[in-house]
């Protein structure tokens, strides 16, 4: 199998469309611990397309409002930060999330569904274990964590049986290592390179880079990385992986340094993920760009 060199990876990353200015600013803003809703409103107002999409989502059947909401302020406060971020990312990077991941034998849209479920689960882990970090930031990080798969999937074409064989013979410890052995890069590294080009906030880049090995994350963001590590595992257990790599990663039990999860809390989280996902997927469409 052909390995991707550093130069080629840079080429792949640079061929990906940039985030829109408003999505990029929204990610910067919402990563700040002290941001206010009003700042989000001001930012969304500068983007007419995003404003229209937010109003369309809030008035969709999924929310069942009796009277239409016509003001963007009310729409944003009703939907909450995480849904606004989902709309903004889906609108400008929807094609990437919608892509068929042939290298993982996953259908178009599977990546977006997995990311959305990871996002909801990471947020719930934070909420239900009373952690100190921002639940909404955990959501955003969950949404973006696997973006590298869209970049390397084509290079992994027809490799799924080989990857699984490498893992079962213990030549690779997990799917991540199998990717690295087969093409020279894994999806977290590819995603991290894109995070740099997209100038994502450091917290989000750290999650993209280390979500399978959260102990390697810098101290400052480690708790957030563990939240997404758990969210990712919960999404896969719930039957929403991205094809051949589903559940072929190792759970780091040291999450318990940050989150107190009992079997009952976990069951509640899984149930909430199922219910929230149904609602969000319905209101956003299967992917963020399901305009048509």
């Amino acid at each position: 199998m052909k390995k991707i060199g550093q130069d080629e990876l840079q080429k792949i990353v640079k061929s990906v469309p940039m985030l829109s200015a408003s999505a990029s600013q929204l990610l910067q803003l919402t990563a700040k611990p002290d941001h206010e809703l009003l700042e989000i409103v001001t930012l969304v107002r500068t983007d007419a397309t995003l404003t229209a999409r937010v109003l369309k989502v809030v008035n969709s059947a999924a929310f069942g409002l009796i009277n239409d909401i016509t003001s963007i302020d009310r729409a944003i406060s009703y939907l909450g930060e995480r849904i606004i971020v989902s709309i903004a990312i889906g609108d400008c990077a929807g094609k990437l999330f919608e892509k068929e991941l042939s290298g993982y034998e996953a259908a178009g849209g599977d990546l977006w569904k997995h990311d959305l479920r990871t996002a909801i689960a990471a947020r719930e882990v934070v909420v239900q274990s009373d952690a100190e970090i921002s639940p909404d930031l955990a959501f955003t990080a969950g949404l973006l964590h696997d973006i590298g798969k869209a970049l390397i999937s084509d290079y992994l074409k027809d490799s799924a049986p080989e990857a699984l064989a490498l893992i079962s013979s213990q030549d690779s410890k997990d799917y991540l290592e199998a990717e690295e052995q087969m093409i020279g890069f894994d999806h977290t590294r590819a995603g991290f390179e894109l995070a740099k080009v997209w100038k994502l906030p450091a917290e989000l880049a750290e999650v993209i880079h280390h979500h399978h090995n959260p102990a390697d994350a810098v101290d400052q963001y480690r708790e957030l990385v563990y939240a997404v590590h758990l969210g990712d595992n919960i999404a896969m257990l719930g039957g929403f992986g991205t094809g051949s790599d589903s559940m072929q990663y190792r759970l780091d039990p040291n999450y318990s340094d940050y989150f107190n999860l009992t079997p009952k809390t976990l069951a509640n989280i899984m149930l909430t993920v199922d219910m929230e996902f149904e609602k969000l997927a319905q209101s956003l469409g299967n992917s963020g760009d399901a305009e048509e």
Binding site: L237, M247, P253, A267
Partner: peptide, 16 residues
């Protein structure tokens, strides 16, 4: 009833 690799007791949802 699948599990992730290196699962701990809490995450053995499939087994439960």
């Amino acid at each position: 009833g699948a599990n992730v690799m290196d699962t701990n007791d809490t995450f053995k949802i499939g087994k439960r």
